[in-house]
Design a binder for these strands. Structure first.
Lengths: 253, 253
DNA sequence: TTTCTCGTTCCATATTTCGGAACTTAAATT
DNA sequence: AATTTAAGTTCCGAAATATGGAACGAGAAA
């Protein structure tokens, strides 16, 4: 039912997530493909511009991906809508703003506005996180259709990414319930130690949650209860603003 | 000598350069692949996250490319070095700065700093241009090793992209000669009508030209001879600064 | 309801990949 | 300079795999 050659060759591409450069030898070792096959595939991928030969005789990712990445980014309409609001949010709060959407059973960071603070949390665009971990991925989970959400939680193999990761499913369900009721989610050291986040949902015209907006920063700046209330208010307002730009109308859920 | 399945499946990916979404039918039409094969390939590409099913039942590029694009961008060291200098250059001149490297017989835009002018020239990261057209691609051509350069020019099929494209090879050689002698290149309406650019070369520690830096803007702001001299001086200085950051040492050519 | 159209599955055919082995090249070692 | 090693590259018979026609299913349009 699937084309094995495609699967294998894409597996080769994925090796480059973890390695900037790979020799044929290394590709063979990591994929268990016969040398001849790996060689032919890599050559074909190079021919199409997806891989590039390095000066040292190895392979690396081709600049093709720069083009494709830009293309995908530009086609995500929500990014354009959200960006100015995110910039404003960052100005007002001094914390980094992130925009996250769901991709299957994962969350993907698709836009960010960094701060110039000396201490800050840096997120890469395209980065993935599990839906159960971190305020922003979890806000997506919280507002998923119930059956989908429960199926996901039941099936989920929850990994402790950092000291604060919520690994108990009952506790997770409570937090999700809270998020739905209050319209925001908060996390401390869930994906990364010493980093905190507050997130709120972004809706479309059908009232479906299409993205999550978050403020992320070092835990130390997310402790004071009064300050937290300010941040919560600001993130909810910003998310609402983007929702309206996305066609959402208050009370039309 | 090459794996045809890989070639064909990457051909499918490339269709999405021009189409945001494609149905199976459309893929079949454009590739001339049998329906069954196209179907299996598309499904496999989706399985690996390179394609994504749309609500309408078609396919689009997967978010995987966002991740891979970021990865490729982050691995281009020159970008990090150049960015602050480019930002400064933009501040001083009020024009957009672009950074371009060579990829085979093409130039690729790998970094940019846009202006907030009402009238401006917008360039997409990952965009490609022929080496013979536009100030910045041409600066790369001008400083290529002579044999490579001549082989390229001889073989080149020069297309007129805009009203000012230099299509005469003798004239092109003269301009390249001028660029080498004076250390910069200038273009008017070569790739796009009513847009001008000035470019200078960036060198590495071996004195090889590894990138081109350019200022781009509407033609109207690149006419006054005195102003041009200022821009030329600034772009050359900025390129020199980045060259030094890349390990280049004056006079060590 | 009927008729299209498009996506999906089936399966025998044969094209294509596979993969061991031999060859080539370049660098490291003696 | 000769030898060894380790990498990439090419060759070709065997066999696994993709092919692609046909038939099926589902959903939309007439």
């Amino acid at each position: 039912m699937s084309n094995k050659t495609v699967l294998k060759s894409m597996e080769i591409i994925k090796l480059f997530f973890q390695h900037e450069e790979l020799t044929l030898q290394q590709i063979v070792k990591q994929t268990n493909l016969p040398k001849t096959s790996a060689h032919r595939m890599a050559e074909s991928l190079e021919e199409m511009g997806f891989l590039q030969k390095t000066n040292e005789g190895g392979y690396k990712l081709g600049l093709m991906f720069l083009q494709l990445g830009t293309l995908v980014a530009d086609r995500l309409d929500i990014r354009q809508l959200a960006y100015p609001v995110m910039k404003q949010l960052k100005e007002e709060t001094g914390e980094a703003a992130n925009l996250v959407i769901r991709d299957g059973d994962e969350a993907v960071y698709i836009e960010k506005v960094d701060t110039s603070e000396r201490v800050r949390v840096y997120t890469q665009i395209g980065r993935r996180a599990p839906l159960y971990g971190g305020a922003c991925p979890r806000i997506l989970l919280a507002f998923m259709p119930e059956n989908e959400r429960e199926r996901f939680i039941d099936a989920a193999d929850i990994q402790a990414y950092a000291s604060g990761t919520v690994t108990d499913k009952t506790r997770l369900r409570e937090i999700l319930q809270f998020s739905r009721e209050h319209g925001y989610s908060i996390s401390h050291s869930e994906l990364e130690d010493y980093s905190s986040a507050i997130a709120a949902p972004i809706m479309n015209h059908k009232g479906e949650v299409i993205a999550g907006l978050s403020l992320v920063g070092p835990e130390i700046r997310f402790q004071d209860e009064q300050h937290l209330q300010v941040l919560i208010k600001k993130i909810k307002n910003a998310a609402k603003e983007i929702s309206i730009l996305s066609g959402w109308k208050e009370g039309a859920e």
